[in-house]
Design a protein around this nucleic acid. Structure first.
Lengths: 116, 116
DNA sequence: TCAATATATGAATAACTGTTCATATATTAC
DNA sequence: GTAATATATGAACAGTTATTCATATATTGA
């Protein structure tokens, strides 16, 4: 593997890229955030929660699938700080944890020209 | 599986959630976009390209890993519209395809308090 | 045309992850 | 305490995917 022939023109960009790369730890954190919201089931849960908090059964109704599967995904969303939960009697009520989450979703939808 | 006991309080939110769920097709598209940028290797490539276009060898230098692995990931990024490519002699020069991609990255970094 | 460089790609393997099933925990009502 | 409801979770399985290896394609220069 030898040097790129156009090194001169791209030297600056290449140097900049090399010296400004985020650490592996930072990269992993950002990647984990995106991965967390990149599964259709989890994404549906977030979409369902846009209009307000919901208990698990209502989330199951909205997104489909089994209670167990939804519960597993809720756990992952919560572990990554995308949703928060509080108990209310027999129910656990979930809601979106952070306005940044809503903003990222909106931006992605805008990018894809979705009507959300 | 019976109804949630707090149906009355959450009825509105539940109805809203049900009637405003995006289609499966839209959900899949959004999920695919996030999944595309949720792998550390692909994310590193995007970070490397923030400062300007780079040929493949320079990308390999910046993100590490083998040429083959990087090339495979570039293919996926390109297929999802995250990067674009043009030939320049022997080299293929890659760059970020869309300002929305940069915006999503910045928002995620801001959310995680990364210094990017 | 031949050699060298740059990039892409098909196949195989290994690691990861979402779902399912069964079961456990927690709360409320009786 | 017991029954019923709501939610969570461990283990196993299945599907997905990133990497590696070997090789193919494309461009340039001689």
């Amino acid at each position: 593997m030898t040097k790129c022939l156009h090194e001169k023109e791209h030297e600056l960009a290449a140097k900049n890229a090399l010296s400004n790369m985020p650490s592996d730890e930072e990269t992993e954190r950002v990647a984990a955030l995106f991965k967390c919201i990149s599964e259709p089931c989890r994404l549906k849960i977030l979409f369902a929660l846009r209009h307000g908090e919901l208990c698990v059964l209502h989330i199951v109704e909205a997104v489909g699938g089994t209670q167990s599967a939804v519960s597993h995904q809720l756990r992952i969303l919560k572990a990554h700080g995308a949703v928060k939960a509080r108990r209310e009697g027999q129910n656990i009520v979930y809601s979106i944890a952070d306005e940044h989450v809503v903003a990222v979703l909106s931006l992605a939808c805008e990018h894809l020209h979705c009507k959300l």
